[in-house]
Design a protein around this nucleic acid. Structure first.
Length: 279
DNA sequence: ATTTTCCCCTGCCGGC
DNA sequence: TGCCGGCAGGGGAAAA
């Protein structure tokens, strides 16, 4: 479900509400959420800790604490983090964990498909980036993500470009929606071998990735189906998508009919008029 | 080494 | 109406 813009939206909302607050009772309603660490150790270790920051790395949310390693959260496909200033809404379904905060309020982790996870980063990490190395690549909205850097990541790769964009170890935070949207904006076909993009195509793709991610953050993310922000509200980006989930509708750029295909096992939308297939 | 595929789960939708 | 396959914003392990 949530990609970088959705996680970033939630991050900002939780930062406002959690920083400086003390975690109280932690109730894990679904042990699968916390595997493999022991549920009781997880809950006990959080109680009494003060939240000092809420960060994002790729699609991971990180809650920094006054002692011990950060709390890590990943929403995967259908996870939600819902903030309730008072008692949680009893109508919320698929509740996996509840974090009470001192002074009132509860953070609820709900997740229909149960793919989401919560855990503590390892103790005594000298450098957190060492934990992410090989697992999460460059931040596409960070200073390190230049057109030249993207070119370096694509160079020599014979596989199709879309799965490479979805590979979190290469670029962090791009998911199926924004991969389709960025490739469409850049007029690059998702099946093009990554290393075959010329300099101008790399430049366009770099610009498109940042532009679409920024637009989505500004819009509060895409609520195609399950996604809700920390207030339980829908985002606005789903109405601004140009190709994703627009099968059979006219391309906003050239009028050709948007088609749906399958690339790397993922449903993929593209405009056959704008995005020329590989030779 | 890099690239598919299978799997983890639940719910929904379309086809028969 | 009911059953069944297919699909879904993700990612890790196993297999090729």
């Amino acid at each position: 479900m949530p990609e970088l813009p959705e996680v970033e939206t939630i991050r900002g909302q939780l930062e406002e509400r959690l920083v400086g607050r003390v975690i109280g009772r932690v109730a894990v309603d679904d042990a699968l959420l916390v595997a493999p660490a022991a549920v009781t150790a997880f809950a006990r270790g959080l109680r009494g800790r003060t939240v000092t920051a809420v960060r994002r790395r790729g699609k991971y949310l990180l809650v920094d604490l006054d002692a011990g390693p950060p709390l890590a959260l990943h929403l995967r496909m259908t996870g939600r983090l819902l903030w309730f200033p008072g008692r949680p809404d009893p109508d919320v379904t698929h509740v996996r964990a509840r974090f009470d905060l001192g002074g009132g309020g509860t953070l609820v982790f709900a997740d229909m498909r149960r793919f989401g996870r919560a855990w503590r980063l390892p103790e005594g990490l000298p450098d957190e980036e060492a934990y992410w190395a090989g697992r999460v690549g460059v931040e596409p909205l960070g200073d390190g993500f230049t057109a030249a850097a993207l070119g370096g990541l694509l160079a020599g790769r014979r596989g199709p470009v879309k799965p490479l964009l979805l590979n979190q170890a290469v670029v962090a935070g791009i998911g199926n929606i924004y991969a389709d949207e960025a490739l469409f904006q850049a007029r690059v076909h998702p099946l093009r071998p990554a290393g075959s993009l010329d300099r101008d195509e790399v430049r366009r793709l770099h610009r498109a990735i940042r532009d679409r991610l920024r637009a989505a953050v500004a819009a509060g993310g895409s609520s195609i189906d399950r996604y809700r922000d920390a207030n339980g509200d829908r985002g606005g980006m789903q109405d601004l998508l140009r190709v994703h989930r627009r099968e059979g509708r006219p391309c906003v750029r050239c009028g050709a009919t948007v088609v749906k295909t399958r690339v790397g096992g993922r449903g993929t939308y593209l405009c056959p008029g704008c995005q020329a297939p590989p030779a």
